[in-house]
């Protein structure tokens, strides 16, 4: 059974084809990388999966259900969470609130129960806070829970964004360039962290990454895009030796090694 399946997904913006006949299948528990040069269409893949864009052609299935063109909040509810390339926290909200808000959709209590502060609502609210705090502890931000999210240093904002995504209780986590702007040491720590949460939260992870060492190190499978087309897909070692990939992207690395 595949967790996520994209068949022949194409995304046109006016005359520009950002993504062409993209196929993808993710099995539960996998960590899969998506790579390629700038402007290759990687973030577009995330945007069609999460419902930010409705694809021009093609279909998307999540756990055997078609989700093509579904509303983003319902897709999140179905179990897909993401982070953003250019961190998009709610900067004016506190660290805690950023995580709490992602719990929002799993609340069962209605307005009336909330207004009357019924016991069921109180329990739900308490559980939500406890869970949020546990997540913040997990990413090492519990002490900073009352700080404004926008005031955190860059690396912490990245971790907060992952915590917020985890709070929606996802089965599939999409990470858009999680190591962007990190030095090699930080990138290494992040790789370890992603592997940990993958087992801990029983996740399937699909990540976009520019850092080749990160993506090679972490992914079981890698897809490479260039100009909206899939130019390679397979195990890291295979992809690394693929001539088209080297031409499109990894060529830079070879030069360095020479």
């Amino acid at each position: 059974m595949s967790l996520l399946k994209l068949t022949e997904v194409t995304m046109n913006f006016g005359g520009l084809t950002a993504l062409k006949s993209f196929n993808l299948e993710l099995a539960p528990g996998e960590i899969v990388g998506l790579s390629g040069p700038n402007g290759a269409g990687k973030t577009t893949v995330f945007n069609v999966i999460t419902g930010v864009y409705e694809p021009s052609h093609g279909q998307i299935f999540f756990m055997e259900q078609e989700i093509t063109g579904m509303r983003p909040d319902l897709i999140t509810k179905a179990g897909i969470a993401r982070t953003f390339q250019n961190i998009r926290l709610f900067k004016g909200l506190s660290v805690m609130e950023n995580v709490l808000i992602a719990h929002h959709l799993h609340l069962k209590a209605n307005y009336l129960a909330a207004m009357l502060k019924l016991p069921g609502y109180r329990r739900e609210e308490r559980e939500m806070r406890e869970r949020s705090l546990a997540l913040l502890e997990r990413v090492g931000l519990a002490d900073l829970r009352d700080e404004q999210a926008g005031a955190l240093p860059y690396g912490m904002q990245r971790r907060l964004e992952i915590a917020r995504a985890l709070a929606t209780n996802p089965k599939l986590l999409l990470l858009d360039e999680p190591a962007a702007g990190m030095n090699p040491k930080e990138a290494e720590d992040l790789t370890a962290f992603i592997k940990e949460i993958q087992t801990e939260f029983d996740l399937t992870i699909f990540l976009i990454e520019h850092h080749m060492d990160v993506v090679m190190n972490i992914s079981e499978l890698i897809y490479v895009l260039d100009y909206g087309m899939t130019i390679a897909g397979g195990k890291p070692a295979e992809v690394q030796n693929n001539q088209r990939v080297i031409e499109a992207y990894l060529g830079v690395n070879e030069d360095v090694e020479d």
Binding site: T50, G51, V52, R71, P72, D73, T76, K77, A81, R82, F84, R88, L89, F90, K91, G92, L93, I101, A102, H104, L105, R164, T168
Partner: peptide, 10 residues
């Protein structure tokens, strides 16, 4: 603060 992110957060 941010419509799009709010939607993606459910």
């Amino acid at each position: 603060m941010d419509h799009e992110t709010a939607r993606v957060m459910g």
